[in-house]
Simulated scan of single mutants.
Amino acid sequence: MSGPEARIDAIPPAGPAGLDGSADLGDETAALRREVAALRRALAERDAFLAGVAHELRNPMTPILGQVERLTGAAAREAPEGRVAQGLAQLRWLVERYVRRATTLLDVSRAQTGQLALLAAPVPLAEVVEEVVASLSPMAAHAGSTVTVAVPDDLVLSCERLALDQILDNLVTNAIKYGDGGAIAVSATREAGTARIRVSDRGIGIAETDQARIFERFERAVGDPSTAPVGFGVGLWLVRRLAEAMGGGVALDSRPGEGATFTVTLPLHA
């Protein structure tokens, strides 16, 4: 036999649940719902654990950083060019980087759980850019990169200073990692009540097919883990979340072998 009748005859007989198997389907749906609920609880527990770990990692470093700063200041007054002063300056930078990494973990956890509350205030953009670039100068020098800054002094943002610092730190760090030792430029312009902040490098660039992916958690521009720089793979995801939380956004312009330019848009202080 052929045709619709043959296809109907081929359907296995219905069990006790009935012809449409509605009872079996209901059981499967209920099982899936229980599994989803269990996964959500596991994710919530993971995020809570991550927040606790980040908090415990960061807090003990605050008094340590204070002591390092005190010793750095004393050594700089006694022998500014001495090896002790230079070593303490390097130690201070390493401790600050450690604190920043712990803060990144904490911010990721807060963003994921919807607890990332940002308070807007007037923030001078040029001042924050200068601080971030200065803190990353040892990393840039080690990579063979120079960082130039062209940010007008009159650009005052309406944002949270720590979040802005985190955005700039992630973007400049990213440019140093993937900039292939080339020049890096940080600039900003005013445009209709907003500031457009650009961080550009001349490095390996990012393929168009990867440009959306790298803004997701645990993703990187380099697909091969053996060749990718060390990191959590959350920097650009956090940049996007922080920028959007402050009423702005982030965009990317890049081609392989021609570098990359990340543009963050944030509101200006009225």
Results as ranks from 00 to 15, higher is better:
Val36Glu: 08
Glu81Trp: 12
Phe232Ser: 15
Asn59Gly: 04
Val172Gln: 00
Thr29Gln: 03
Ala74Asn: 07
Ala30Thr: 08
Ala44Lys: 12
Asp20Ala: 09
Leu252Gly: 10
Val239Leu: 06
Asp165Glu: 13
Arg70Val: 09
Arg220Cys: 05
Val199Tyr: 09
Gly3Ile: 04
Glu216Tyr: 07
Ala141Asp: 05
Arg77Asp: 15
Phe215Tyr: 14
Lys177Pro: 01
Ala150His: 14
Glu258Asn: 05
Leu25Gly: 04
Ala183Gln: 10
Ser135His: 02
Thr189Ile: 15
Ala54Pro: 04
Leu238Met: 08
Leu155Ala: 07
Ala75Asn: 07
Leu106Asn: 03
Gly114His: 13
Glu131Gly: 10
Gly82Phe: 06
Val99Trp: 06
Ser109Gly: 10
Asn174His: 10
Ala143Cys: 01
Ala85Ile: 01
Leu125Thr: 06
Thr104Arg: 15
Glu127Arg: 14
Glu35Asp: 09
Ala23His: 00
Gln86Arg: 13
Glu96Trp: 06
Met1Gly: 13
Thr194Glu: 14
Val222Pro: 00
Lys177Thr: 00
Leu71Phe: 11
Ala85Asp: 04
Arg40Asp: 15
Val234Gly: 02
Arg240Pro: 00
Leu65Arg: 07
Arg213Ala: 08
Ala102Cys: 05
Arg255Gln: 14
Leu25Val: 00
Ala143Ile: 11
Arg92Ser: 13
Pro152Lys: 14
Val95Tyr: 08
Ala111Lys: 07
Val132Ile: 11
Arg255Ile: 01
Glu160Val: 13
Ala75Gln: 10
Thr265Leu: 04
Leu116Phe: 12
Ala221His: 01
Ala54Val: 05
Ala207Pro: 02
Ala51Val: 00
Leu39Tyr: 11
Arg220Phe: 11
Glu216Asn: 09
Thr261Cys: 14
Pro4Cys: 00
Glu56Thr: 10
Val239Tyr: 02
Val133Glu: 02
Ala48Gln: 12
Asp107Arg: 12
Tyr98Met: 11
Val250Lys: 08
Gly205Asp: 12
Ala260His: 12
Gly248His: 10
Ala79Pro: 01
Ser187Asn: 03
Thr104Glu: 14
Glu78Lys: 14
Thr104Lys: 08
Ala74Asp: 13
Glu131Ile: 13
Leu238Val: 11
Arg46Gln: 10
Leu106Met: 11
Glu160Ala: 14
Phe218Ile: 11
Ile8Lys: 09
Ile197Trp: 01
Leu106Tyr: 12
Thr146Leu: 11
Ala31Asp: 14
Ile11Phe: 07
Leu157Thr: 07
Arg58Ser: 10
Tyr178Trp: 09
